[in-house]
């Protein structure tokens, strides 16, 4: 991975001309560039293991919450149906695992195929792209989601890989790159008065 400080810095404020610079297109003129200066250098590079692990942990937290929430919802519905004879149901572990795996696959699939991001990836400024740099095809996204949900620890292969690729990345020729989501410009305080 190239050092951040070795990469050319782009001017603040997005006033750079619309041209190719060092193989990377800079923002068009008059377009505000909300990416911090320190982060511009590694946009488009493959992410490392720490960033991806944090993003994955966030995704797992989301899916765990949803899975447990499913069980809680089931308990509430059960209580509403039979409040007198209510007893706290217990699910076997495999039910949680199957449910969690399904949720995770569905979650990763839609996220990668639709925007290239899950919630964790969005939080950490990551995007999953194919070998051309485009968003994943639905089938590729489904395969990758099923694979990653089944063997999540294969993610850590990117720490050993010379190209920061995990096993699913190698098999499906995908990449997880730094691609911070660009937020819409926040209006200044004075614009509230003008409005």
């Amino acid at each position: 991975m190239a050092d951040v400080t070795d990469l050319p810095e782009m001017p603040e404020g997005g006033e750079a001309p619309d041209q190719e610079t060092s193989g990377r297109r800079v923002p068009k003129a008059h377009v505000p560039d909300p990416i911090p200066t320190a982060a511009r250098g590694f946009q488009g590079l493959r992410a490392g293991v720490v960033t991806r692990t944090i993003a994955g942990a966030v995704d797992y937290a989301v899916i765990t919450t949803v899975t447990v929430g499913t069980w809680v919802s089931y308990v509430v519905v059960l209580f509403l149906i039979k409040p007198i004879d209510f007893t706290l149901p217990t699910w076997p572990l495999w039910v949680f695992l199957v449910l969690g795996y399904s949720y995770m696959t569905l979650y990763l699939w839609t996220g990668w195929a639709w925007t290239g991001r899950t919630f964790g990836a969005r939080l950490m400024g990551l995007r999953v792209v194919d070998h051309r740099g485009n968003r994943l095809h639905w089938t590729v996204a489904l395969l990758r989601a099923a694979f990653c949900a089944l063997v999540p620890l294969l993610l850590w292969w990117c720490a050993i890989s010379r190209e920061n690729r995990s096993i699913p990345d190698v098999l499906l020729r995908t990449s997880v790159i730094h691609d911070w989501p660009v937020r819409a410009a926040v209006p200044a305080v004075g614009e509230h008065l003008d409005a």
């Binding site: 991975m1 190239a2 990377r24 505000p32 493959r46 051309r132 990449s175 660009v182």
Partner: peptide, 20 residues
């Protein structure tokens, strides 16, 4: 040797001025 982390294509954050 240093790692090869350049990915194909261009990040959308450097192409667009708005959120996705």
């Amino acid at each position: 040797k240093a790692r090869r982390t350049d990915a194909p294509g261009e990040p959308e954050s450097m192409l667009r001025g708005g959120d996705d």
